[in-house]
Computed example of a mutant assay.
Amino acid sequence: MPALFPASCSTAARDWVAGAIATIEADFNRSADTHLIPFPMPGHPGIDVYLKDESSHPTGSLKHRLARSLFLYALANGWLQEGTTVIEASSGSTAVSEAYFARLLGLPFIAVMPTCTSPEKIAAIEFQGARCHLVDDPGAINAESARLARELGGHFMDQFTYAERATDWRANNNIAESIFKQMAQEPHPVPHWIICGAGTGGTSATLGRYVRYRRNDTRVLCVDPEHSVFYDYYRGCVEGRPDCGRVLAVGSGIEGIGRPRVEASFIPQCVDAMVKVPDALSLAAMRHVSARLGRRVGGSTGTNFVGVLEAARRMREAGLAGSIVTILCDSGDRYAHSYYSPAWYAQQGIDIERADAIIAAAVRGDALAGVSLAQMRPGCLD
C-alpha cells in the first residue's frame, strides 16, 4: 500500500475556510450590481458614452471587485486561516476594500502605502479596524509588505501579482460580463471601445480576455497617467523591444492607477491600444465629469474620460457610430485635500484654466489647434 501523508490542514481549519467563503458569498448576494450611466456627448453625434459607476460598491470603488476576488483566491488556495494577518501594498482604494473583507472575516489587516496617500483614504481604512503602515518610497511598498508578512507570519495579498489571475474572467459577474448585460438594450449594445486605467492591470486583463472569449468586436483601450511605466512598456512590446525592468523615481500623481514599475498582473496582449495622459488633463476631465454628474469623481475617472475623448474623436473622424464604455472608479470625496483643493493645484503648479479649456474643446468636438490630448500606441483608434 502507498504511504498516506497526513492532511495539510485540520478539519477545523477546512471548516473555517468554508465558512469564510460562505460569508463573502453571502455579502456579495446582498449587494446590487453597479449602475451604467449614459453620458451624453452632443459634440460627438452617433457616439454613445456610458460610465460604469463602480463608486456604488459597499467600499466605494472599483477595487471592491478585486478585493473580493483576491480573498476568495487566497482562501481557495489555503493561504488564509483563522487569525492570519493580511497585508497589502496599496495606494488606498484596494486597501479600503480589503480592510472591509478582512473585518468581515475577523482577520487583522495592515495596509502598506505611500506617505502621500490622501488622509480621506487613510481614514476609510482605519474605519474598518485596519492599520496603515506608511512608506516614504512608493516603489518600496511591495518589499515592505513582504517583510511584514515574514515577520508577522501573515499573508501578503500582493494585488500586483495576483489581480489578473484571481478574477474569473469568463463569468461570475465580473465587470466585463456586467457591462455587456447592461448594454444589451442600448442602441449599440456591443461597445466599440471599453476604456480603463491600469493600476494592477487586473481590470484590463479581465476585459481583454472576456471580449476575446465571447468573440466580441469590442476593443480595450488602456489609459496610463503621466508618471507611470505601463505605456512605455506597452510601446516597447508593440515595437518588439519589451523592457519590464524600467523603474521610475516618482509615483503616479493619479491615485489608484499608474505604477513606477511594470507589475506581473499587467498583460499587454490583453490591450488593443494605450494612451498616456498628462495629469493636468486627467484632473480637468475629472472636474468636467463631476460638473456634468453633479457629484465628485476621482482622478482616475478623469484619466479614463480623456481616453473616451480620444477614442470618440478617432471614431468621428473615421465616420463611425457606436458606443464607448468607461469606468467611474471612485468618489471624489476621498480627494478633498488634493484634487478638489485650489491650494493643492497652486502647490503643484498646474494650470487649471488651460487644461479646462482643452477638455471643454474636446468635449465640444472642436479642433484642438495642434494640442494632443494624449500620446497613443499603436495609433489605430479607428
Rank of each mutant, 00 (worst) to 15 (best):
residue 226 E to Y: 02
residue 281 L to P: 03
residue 221 L to T: 07
residue 268 P to Q: 03
residue 264 A to Y: 07
residue 258 G to H: 07
residue 226 E to N: 06
residue 254 I to W: 02
residue 187 P to M: 05
residue 170 R to Q: 12
residue 195 I to D: 01
residue 146 A to W: 03
residue 198 A to I: 07
residue 145 S to W: 10
residue 279 D to I: 04
residue 226 E to M: 03
residue 262 V to Q: 02
residue 253 G to T: 06
residue 208 G to P: 13
residue 238 V to I: 15
residue 161 T to H: 08
residue 176 A to L: 08
residue 175 I to E: 13
residue 200 T to C: 09
residue 147 R to G: 03
residue 241 R to S: 14
residue 244 C to M: 06
residue 161 T to M: 01
residue 145 S to K: 08
residue 262 V to I: 09
residue 136 D to H: 09
residue 244 C to V: 06
residue 212 R to H: 11
residue 211 V to P: 13
residue 149 A to F: 08
residue 237 C to T: 14
residue 215 R to M: 02
residue 214 R to V: 03
residue 140 A to Q: 15
residue 230 F to K: 06
residue 239 E to P: 11
residue 137 D to L: 10
residue 143 A to E: 15
residue 141 I to K: 09
residue 211 V to W: 11
residue 213 Y to K: 05
residue 277 V to Q: 00
residue 249 A to T: 12
residue 151 E to S: 11
residue 172 N to R: 15
residue 239 E to H: 15
residue 150 R to P: 02
residue 240 G to H: 10
residue 282 S to Q: 02
residue 182 Q to A: 00
residue 240 G to C: 13
residue 148 L to R: 01
residue 254 I to S: 05
residue 219 R to Y: 04
residue 198 A to L: 07
residue 188 H to C: 03
residue 262 V to H: 01
residue 137 D to A: 12
residue 200 T to N: 10
residue 202 G to C: 09
residue 224 D to H: 04
residue 184 A to Y: 00
residue 187 P to Y: 02
